[in-house]
Design a protein around this nucleic acid. Structure first.
Lengths: 339, 339
DNA sequence: CTCCCTGTTGACAGCGCTGTCTAACCAAGC
DNA sequence: GCTTGGTTAGACAGCGCTGTCAACAGGGAG
């Protein structure tokens, strides 16, 4: 046995023990061609004996790329993004990439910092759920890194966007409520500066417009803060002289608040449709009808697209829209009973 | 203006433009002492102009460490861990560390692979929610990396463990049910090979023992698979000749299934306590009483401990147990009414 | 005036790896 | 025999950075 290298073994250690050059070790480890079977087996054996693993920092320094995919979302604690990220992780790992996650908390400045941090690390690709605000800096910061936007984009990004047709999905939901006789339908949105929320609100307005209805401002609660679990707005709505007979909640977070409020006030006669599914939506009485906005579907499509781009495929930037089936569970099928 | 460096600027570019040596640039960037104010300001200006950012790969190659904290959990999609990870991320970032997350899906082999991947990357510290199975390999794989176990440990790990007193928390919950007259109390657990589940089951048994009760095997559902959303077991329990009058669910996932089943069968007269809170637990009728098992609290304590270790503080490996208050919402306060 | 000390700066090696280029080797063909 | 060409292997530079050590200037003490 040769002397034991202290610390982590390097290509030099392997080369010395195997009696070959470091370049040959590198070739074996990277599965490059030009190594005879005999040599390859010998080297692999030594690699195993010594427990050699490549040092990604050194490799990244030479190659300028790190086999890592960056994922930047509002918050990993948000169930929608948690689920999205977890699918990305699995799929990326299968393709040989590790995943780096970062949260923006919807803060444009933090988003920018996170992007900067990731580009520093020579990520191979980027998945981003952009927050509101200007992204003029983006091209300069993320230059040359393949990127795919998830869930939402910004005008003129020139990038792939994988998401759903927010406007059409919302419109379909509100049209169902209208069809049941509802005329006073409230809108719940967390922040209309977010394009998704804005599009869903547009769909809501489309449906009302088409039915010849205008929106009483007191029913249009489109800027509930991220912090407000939505409950407060619903309490207020219920106390109006002419309360809404139906709610359209534009995302899971506001829906959780709305459900809480409706149940507290025992007003489960109020119809409700949520854009975005959530745990227990099916267990409530009545079950909550949702426009299904499946994170796994979006993640899968987005990673596949990104991997194709990383692989060098030349693709025209496209908006990939996934379907949003209406899952009827009861709350969205309550007809309008005059109170 | 000097010629524009193509690609990303390096210390050489900054040094050349500023008319100093690369070492001085390095000193300024790393805030090392021994640079005059004048030089520092000059260099910073050039850094700004050129948009210089350090290359972490190169730095990591030299220093052998990457200012990254690795976090390995069952799954980022699990709300408990999602919340834990998100708190870790924020806190680590504030301390100048970025976060790498990986899921094990409770697969010991995958856990090992993820650990290996992270050690390769020269992480500065590790937070791990160990899955079941032997961890004999651990010391050899993760040598020299400060590590803190979260939520659960394994016997003889010799590492810090930050979690809750599963056994005592579970016992307190079951004792409350016993106090209300319940005698047939079912246990729901996802996998008794997980130490947390095992401890909670032990607490359940402790309480019954102390009350002089034995556990009918048909009420002890301790190995529901991860995939089973728990519902099935509860349907079966409800159809027993002598169904349980109360459920003790040992984690949020099984609780979600149980709630679903109880509500489907309209058996909200069955008492229930969940170990672990979940969304809408308070909105249900009745609200679900929970043993609060707060991921944010655990994350905070764990990161702080890890940062102290990374900082070189010499600490005796400790088990840090956080409180698990019983949050009474109704379902755990239903007394036993003979059906 | 010299010596030494402190504060500031730079030259240079080398972290572990891959890309480029060259060398050695063997078989086939003239 | 020598050339040609393909395959396998190695020498070496250099990716961008930090650690070590040496150099040098300025100023107070002897």
């Amino acid at each position: 046995m040769t002397e034991f290298p202290t610390g982590r073994p390097t290509v030099y250690d392997v080369a010395r023990v195997a009696g070959v050059s470091i370049k040959t070790v590198s070739r074996v480890v990277n599965r490059s061609s030009g190594v005879s079977d005999k040599t390859r087996r010998l080297v692999l054996e030594v690699v195993n004996d010594l427990g050699y693993v490549v040092n990604p920092a050194a490799r990244s320094l030479v190659t300028g790329s790190s086999s890592t995919i960056g994922v930047i979302v509002d918050s990993i604690a948000d169930p929608f993004f948690a689920s999205l990220v977890s699918v990305v992780e699995v799929r990326a790992l299968a393709a040989g990439f590790s995943t780096q996650v970062a949260s923006t908390w919807r803060d444009p400045q933090l988003e920018r910092d996170q992007l900067l941090r990731m580009t520093r690390e020579n990520i191979s690709g980027l998945l981003l759920a952009p927050t509101m605000g200007d992204h003029d800096y983006f091209a300069a910061t993320v230059k040359d890194v393949p990127a795919v936007l998830v869930d939402r984009g910004w005008p003129g990004s020139g990038l792939d966007v994988v998401g759903v047709n927010d406007r059409a999905g919302a419109r379909a939901a509100v049209e169902q409520l209208l069809g049941l006789g509802h005329r006073r339908i409230a809108f719940l949105g967390d922040d209309s500066k977010l394009t998704t929320t804005a599009h869903r609100r547009a769909g809501y307005l489309d449906a009302l417009d088409a039915a010849g209805l205008s929106v009483p401002p007191e029913l249009d609660r489109h800027s509930l803060l991220m912090a407000d679990p939505g409950g407060k707005a619903v309490f207020e709505l219920l106390e109006l002289d002419e309360p809404p007979t139906a709610l359209f909640s534009s995302n899971s977070r506001t829906s959780l608040g709305a459900v809480r409020a409706l149940h507290k006030r025992r007003r489960t006669d109020v119809a409700m449709i949520s854009f975005g599914d959530f745990d227990l939506a099916d267990a409530l009485e009545p079950g909550i009808t949702v426009v299904d906005h499946d994170p796994a579907l979006i993640a899968t499509a987005a990673v596949d697209r990104l991997l194709a781009r990383i692989g060098g495929t030349d693709l025209v930037p496209t908006e990939i829209l996934l379907p949003t089936p209406l899952v009827k569970r009861g709350s969205g099928e309550l007809s309008c009973s005059p109170s």
